[in-house]
Design a binder for these strands. Structure first.
Lengths: 192, 192, 192, 192
DNA sequence: ACTTAACCGAGACGGTACGTCCAGTCTTACT
DNA sequence: AGTAAGACTGGACGTACCGTCTCGGTTAAGT
């Protein structure tokens, strides 16, 4: 039962919509980007959008944040080194023009709708949490940390710091930023 | 001649508007709160709002974040203790019903308008930065930290973490949260 | 008891307001002329206007239609000649830039407010009716007309025709117009 | 391919809007009737009104003056009789509650906007002018009038008189009015 | 070949908020 | 009491967008 009756959805429309969102959100920002403009840019009817996504937030999330899920788990041999790589991954993910323009409004919409709010942890944070858990397991095996590090708290700290700096304040990340953040975090959770 | 010509602005209208904003933003959320509804609730014409504030973001900012500027500088004798108090001040500021409801949309609007974006550091962060600077000076005098702590980075980390947890994820702060955050931060920046 | 207590009204303000109305109504038209703009142009507070006139209609009426009340009663020796002069007086009165711009909106406001509507006959038409009555009395004395000419009907016909042509259609009056109208009217009411 | 792409316009919305205008203009008058109230009464969004009409004047014109275009050309055998019928047609057209309430403000708006002003002759007057032309042709064939009657002038006189009496002064038309006007006009233009 | 059913672009639909403008009133300090 | 200035409530304006609905027409799978 893999096929449904009727005409199948046009994959080119799907791709054209996501491309239009990426362009328009970078040009205009999240709030100023209307779905009507997306439809026009993509050469698509508005229904074709609403048939696939429930609203602006879901659509922009998929368009902007679906690439880096495959980021590799860092393994540099030290906790600080691993965290530096991981924070740099976050910075890279949040630094594209589309992400910078989309993030504040996107998270505002997610936060405002309770059904979406519940999905932030699973959608945004879960991939990074898995990488972070592996990093901590290795650090524990090296006796650098205790067994009871609060992964969620550290993750919220790293993500919150990066999001606040780049997404809210709109500052660009210098080459030292990832290491500066990682150094404090690593020292903060190491044993002793 | 300190008085301007014409009828002076009505302070009661000012107060009624801010009270209406605080109520409505807590009831409806930032995006769903219309300035027309604010005017109706306050018993005020829309012009009276637009005469004093340039838009929703400026208005809500003034209504929701103008109380805690007078928060005292903590002085517990230890860096971790001081940071715990300071983080708790942030948590308290971000935990009122109006602040929880207003923050994501408010910061999204500030981030989207470049003229407002520049004001986040000065308007939101400056009071906390001053307290944090005093805390670090005392810690340095106690030889707990070096002289070159990056105050902005730590501040962004503390604020970003609290804002992300409470404002974006909508989680409520448990009694241990402030100390958990402060402990990691203090260890992360201590000398040695 | 000709003097009232308190400061007497400033006659220069009165004149400045009427001058500002005449200018602004000619520039902008009746509907687009706001009393705030009149006050600013006259260098006067809005209250000074509302203290003297009850609203825009009354003000514009006084500014635009108060000059020609002293028009002389024509006496050319023939009914058609007298009517030609009288119609030309109407045309002159309705052809000033201010009158052309003010008339449609002004009469619309008069017609919409029942208390003003009752005043159109007395305010607009009474001076012309008196002149027309004299003209008809002389014509009757010359046995050109019967004794029972419906003065109001003829007056409404002359005024309505001129007002519709100039005020509503916005056409300019050629040199023959007064005589063309007067000829038909005179023939239409002569005996035989 | 005569059909345009997209959802066709809803004829019931069109009719509901015109019905709401007819009701509301009769209840409130032209100036006091807001398009927002029309939309609410018709159960329609404001966009649906602005999509079809450019403003209040165009909308009210279509709602109030679209019935009598099919009025028959009078043919009583005499000029005065024909004119009496024609004037009565004008009176009937201007005497409906909606027309009485709409006319002054409507013509004021038409007169104020130069693009609309040009349409008064074609939209309001053309149907009556055609009937009047036929009446004059017949009168000329009967040798009652010369060949060079100024149709526009007589039409402006008849319409102006009726409009001024009913529309501006707000007087109701007695049973003799049409004949009184027609008698003067007929005598005024007859040969000899 | 024919039916069925979901798809498609286009754009109209009801509804809601926007930010501006004006009417007519009110409140200052000053004359 | 009158004055200039300008703030006040209230409400209409015309625009923009949301998310849904309605057309005519297309594209496959199932019969």
């Amino acid at each position: 039962m893999t096929t449904r009756p009727g005409r199948p959805r046009d994959e080119r429309a799907h791709a054209a919509i996501l491309a239009a969102v990426t362009e328009l959100v970078a040009e205009s920002g999240y709030a100023a980007m209307s779905l009507g403009a997306v439809a026009a840019r993509a050469g698509v009817g508005k229904d074709t959008i609403y048939r696939r996504w429930s609203g602006k937030a879901e659509l922009v999330y998929e368009a902007v944040f679906t690439a880096s899920d495959a980021a590799p788990v860092p393994d540099t041999g030290s906790l600080e080194g691993d965290l530096t790589v991981l924070v740099q991954q976050l910075i890279d993910e949040f630094s594209t023009p589309a992400a910078v323009a989309a993030l504040p409004g996107l998270l505002a919409d997610f936060a405002a709708a309770s059904d979406l709010r519940a999905r932030i942890r699973s959608a945004f944070l879960e991939p990074a949490k898995q990488r972070l858990t592996v990093v901590f397991d290795r650090a524990h095996a090296r006796r650098q940390t205790g067994p009871d590090v609060d992964v969620d708290l550290v993750l919220d700290g790293l993500v919150g710091t990066v999001f606040f700096r780049l997404g809210i304040l709109g500052e660009s990340a210098g080459p030292e930023l990832a290491q500066d953040i990682a150094r404090i975090a690593a020292k903060g959770i190491e044993s002793r």
